[in-house]
Structures are given as structure tokens and as C-alpha cells.
Amino acid sequence: MAYAPTLSPDRVARTTCPYCGVGCQIELHTKGGVVYRVSAPFDAQPNQGKLCVKGRFGHDYLWHPDRLTVPLLRRNGQLVPVGWDEALGFVADRLAAIKSESGPGAIGALGGSRCTNEENYLMQKFARQVIGTHNVDNCARL
């Protein structure tokens, strides 16, 4: 190519592809709050510069208008926007009530294979320390 226009990024951040278990290393080139290019470092395991179509082009969902931006609470059958304080308070009260009525074994938790290690750690800690149950699993069987 004789002429390739270049955009100078605000930032290039190295991170890990969120899609499959290969865990390719990706570099997100950002400008004005969006990713405009994705590259992969050639000197890095496990992918040594290679990416598939999802890792390379699969990040637009980050800005999709359907993204949830506020907590939702069901009222009269409808999910309506509420503040964090109200949503967290509601859940804390309901979980405590169910635990005291039916015991910790009546509560279950599912961690996420798209969430980080730290978050999955906390989810099992929440189940075992805060609720008091081993009813915690993830999507590994799927």
C-alpha cells in the first residue's frame, strides 16, 4: 500500500480477549472513547500476534444502545429503573429474609465464565461466607 492513513490513538491497552478459552492477548487502540482498531502483540503467548474474527472485530457490543445502565427492579410485573441504593437494599433484605425463613440452602448462586477470576472468587465467597451454602456453580458444564 502506497498510502495508509494513520490515526494516532489516545491509548493502546493490552488486555485479554473476552471470547474463548484460548485467551488471546489483544491491544485495544482507542480514540475518543471507542476502540477503532485491535491488534495483537507478536511476542506474546498464547497467540503470538494471531487473532480470529471475534477477537479482532467483535467489540462493538460495548457501545450497543441495549447496554444496561441503571439497576432495574420489578414492580407490578414490570422492570423499572431504580437507584443502586434501593436495588441493593431490596436484594439484601430479601436474601436475609429467605435465609432466615428457609435456611441458606434455599439460596443458590451462579458465577460467570465471562467474569474475572476475582469476581468468581468473590461469588463463591459470597455464597459460602455471607449466605452459608455450597450452592454455587458456573457454566463450565456448558
Binding site: 473476552p18 474463548c20 485467551g23 460467570g112 463450565a140
Partner: peptide
């Protein structure tokens, strides 16, 4: 492993 962090979710004790 299928999804990106299935391995980590299991490693972290997200298992009954």
C-alpha cells in the same frame, strides 16, 4: 475450555 474464563471460574471455587 469453551468460554474465556471457564477455567478461572472453576479454579476460583465457583463449584459446589
Amino acid at each position: 475450555r469453551g468460554q474465556n474464563n471457564v477455567q478461572g471460574a472453576c479454579d476460583m471455587g465457583g463449584l459446589p
